[in-house]
């Protein structure tokens, strides 16, 4: 009986597990293997080269540039998106007029395809005739060439990323806010606490589990969201706005070097593993806290 039950359960798992193994676990293992091999061309037989590809990696200035960019990209987008998401959720959950419309406005970028809207942002950022430069000219400032200048290119990408994800994260905060008990706030008001104090002492700590969840997702996005690069900067100028996943794509499908692309993918997998580890540690603490 027991054996039959086990068999039945594994049969139910079979379609899901075979698909996941074929397109997640097996390719992950193959990535590690490929990163230790090399061949002259895609048709030539590959040979084992040990850590040679990693030697190339360490000496590749573009790789270090990409890692640096990814670091700034995460630092620039994650806290801002979270802060905006909290503000949006508080506004929409509060007593403001036209709440529904506002919530709709904040959420809209979530369902718009990044790649398609990037075409519109491309216009916003274009030098002189673009919307941002036109607005700046109206107040007497000569706007920069947002995407063409290495100093502003990455920042311009970040702005679009924040625009894309803040409204999505707002949803999680909104859901969390609706579970907080009104008595708590009544009590705080009786005590004479101001709105900032209420936020810092009550709302923010109670939203902590949501913040952790959103934080992990925002970090994943910092590695995953590269669609707009294809339209806005293609990683340029001179790799000033290149990010790891885009570099992997370029290496594999423009430079046709799948061995080095695999080596770069290993770096990505290590980064994701670190995020997973951080998540486990953080969520453990959350349970203790409760």
């Amino acid at each position: 009986m027991n054996r039959r039950l086990n068999l039945k359960a594994w049969l139910l798992m079979l379609p899901a597990l075979s698909l996941l193994i074929a397109f997640t676990h097996w390719p992950t293992l193959k990535t590690f293997w490929r990163s230790a091999t090399w061949a002259k061309s895609d048709v030539a037989p590959s040979q084992f080269v040990g850590l040679e590809n990693y030697g190339l990696l360490i000496e590749d200035p573009v790789f270090w540039k990409v890692i640096e960019n990814n670091f700034w990209y995460a630092l620039g987008t994650v806290p801002t998106s979270i802060a905006l998401a909290i503000a949006m959720a508080l506004w929409v959950n509060g007593k403001i007029k036209h709440k529904g419309l506002l919530r709709l406005a904040y959420f809209t970028p979530t369902i718009l395809p990044m790649i398609t809207v990037a075409n519109i942002w491309l216009f916003f950022y274009s030098p002189d005739i673009g919307l941002f430069d036109q607005l700046l000219r109206a107040v007497g400032i000569d706007g920069p060439n947002w995407l063409g200048d290495p100093d502003t290119a990455l920042g311009s990408l970040m702005a679009m990323t924040i625009w894309k994800e803040a409204g999505f994260f707002m949803i999680f905060y909104l859901a969390a806010l609706q579970t907080l008990s009104p008595e708590l706030y009544d009590a705080a008001k009786v005590e004479g606490a101001g709105p900032w104090r209420i936020f810092r002492r009550i709302t923010f700590p109670l939203l902590m589990p949501t913040t952790l969840f959103v934080l992990i997702n925002a970090l994943l996005n910092a590695f995953k969201l590269v669609d707009h690069l294809f339209i806005l900067t293609k990683g340029g100028p001179n790799n000033a706005s290149n990010l790891l996943l885009y570099y992997i794509y370029e290496t594999a499908f423009s430079f046709l070097d799948s061995y080095y692309a695999a080596t770069l993918t290993v770096v990505m997998l290590v980064a994701l593993a670190l995020i997973a580890l951080a998540q486990m540690l953080l969520f453990d603490r959350k349970i203790h806290y409760r």
């Binding site: 995953k224 794509y249 993918t265």
Partner: peptide, 9 residues
């Protein structure tokens, strides 16, 4: 490990 990461393999 989203499928986007494993485009090469």
């Amino acid at each position: 490990v989203m499928p986007e990461v494993l485009i090469v393999e």
